[in-house]
Design a protein around this nucleic acid. Structure first.
Lengths: 220, 220
DNA sequence: AGATCATTCAAGCGATAACTTGAATAATAG
DNA sequence: CTATTATTCAAGTTATCGCTTGAATGATCT
């Protein structure tokens, strides 16, 4: 800084961007968007080793994207504030809007067929109120238990085959998962549409839903 | 992608973040926020070698943050769209809001004294209309020539000493430069306040002013 | 205090990125 | 067509990052 204040400033901005530049850390942030977590839980969810996970988390903390507190022996991490979420969203928007590569990957996910437009959270809330929609929560059971959209059915991708017969073929289905970074809902919609259902994806995931101030049900 | 669609997606998002993770590229983006430029001009402004500059620009192009076109022998680069600017702004917001380090650097720039709040662009426009403010453009002359706020005086930091006597000591001064990443206006305000002037900084720079749809004057 | 558990630190390895130098490509002028 | 100018490509060097392994810290429980 004594050398060049300008460069020092840019170095700080770059530090934040660099923290977002590794897929492993984006996975961690996506998990943390669901709620605060300990190191071990994060390591298990992301498939990283404990030590590696810890190092990534410290890097995120250095960039002030996450903060941590102690709870007994455990250290609990959480997103610093909504800015972190906004930054992740914007990163995704720029990538998806601009990169043809991403387009192709998403096409691959939806089996080459054109995926329908996602349902806005406002529309979904209205249709839940009038009972004209079946809502699927396509996340692991523990995340569902920790909080989900009221009335949503929890099913993992592997459970789809078994649960499909329980669904009313005439009903419209809306699937959601962790959020824009998460591909579970994409895959669920693809699978359901192949079986003739009218399925669409929710715009955003549970973090965005919660961010809107909409109701979230936690299992007792 | 055939291995893991999810990881491939995250890799794309990470690519965008990685493009923003080098100070050199942030400098280039800041320059491009002023308007489109050729490789040589960018290299000169940022102090990079031509080859190095070209490589950074290609990296930004791969992340779709900038696009390019040919103009004769020259290749002209520009920001892809407003999303790039938004992403830079958000990066800055997160860094400045969260990093104590950045706080200290900015304090250092303002000589330890508390800097006044920046003037909003709306306020500045109103006060220009009523003629109750002196506007300083603290950028290099060529950038001033390419476009500036109507009525603004152009002065570089090194010129401040000479030009100060020409200014009405009673007038309120508002300084602006390239934008939030740029520290020229910060330094100008500090220098002026040391000399007893009532000086404040514009919130944002010329790119943001232009983005608002406000008038920009180009020298004939 | 000693044992135990969760997390962090430290050292080492392979891969990747930034920068330099020198050559290759593309468009234009003579 | 050749020369010129602007940009890009390619190879090489140094520094940094991500990951692994093994040891060190810090808080709790007996």
């Amino acid at each position: 800084m004594s050398i060049s204040p300008k460069l020092a400033l840019l170095e700080e901005y770059a530090l934040v961007a660099r923290a977002l530049s590794a897929p492993a850390r984006l996975m961690l942030l996506e998990q943390l968007a669901q709620g605060e977590r300990g190191v071990e839980a994060l390591a298990e969810k992301t498939g990283l080793t404990i030590a590696n996970c810890s190092q990534h988390l410290q890097q995120l903390r250095r960039a002030a994207l996450v903060t941590s507190r102690r709870d007994g022996k455990a250290v609990i991490y959480r997103l610093t504030d909504a800015n972190t979420l906004t930054l992740m969203d914007l990163l995704r928007i720029v990538a998806e809007r601009n990169l043809a590569q991403v387009e192709r990957i998403l096409r691959g996910l939806s089996g080459g067929e054109d995926a329908p437009e996602p349902v806005s959270r406002e529309d979904l809330a209205a249709r839940i109120a009038e009972g004209s929609v079946t809502v699927l929560d396509v996340r692991p059971a523990d995340e569902y238990t920790a909080g989900h959209i009221p009335g949503a059915l929890n099913m993992t991708l592997t459970d789809i085959e078994r649960i499909v017969p329980m669904l009313d073929p005439a009903a419209e289905i809306v699937a959601y998962c962790r959020g824009p970074y998460c591909v579970y809902a994409h895959q669920a919609v693809t699978a359901l549409r192949k079986r003739g259902f009218t399925a669409r994806r929710l715009d955003g995931g549970l973090p965005e839903w919660r961010e809107d101030g909409r109701p979230v049900l936690t299992e007792a």
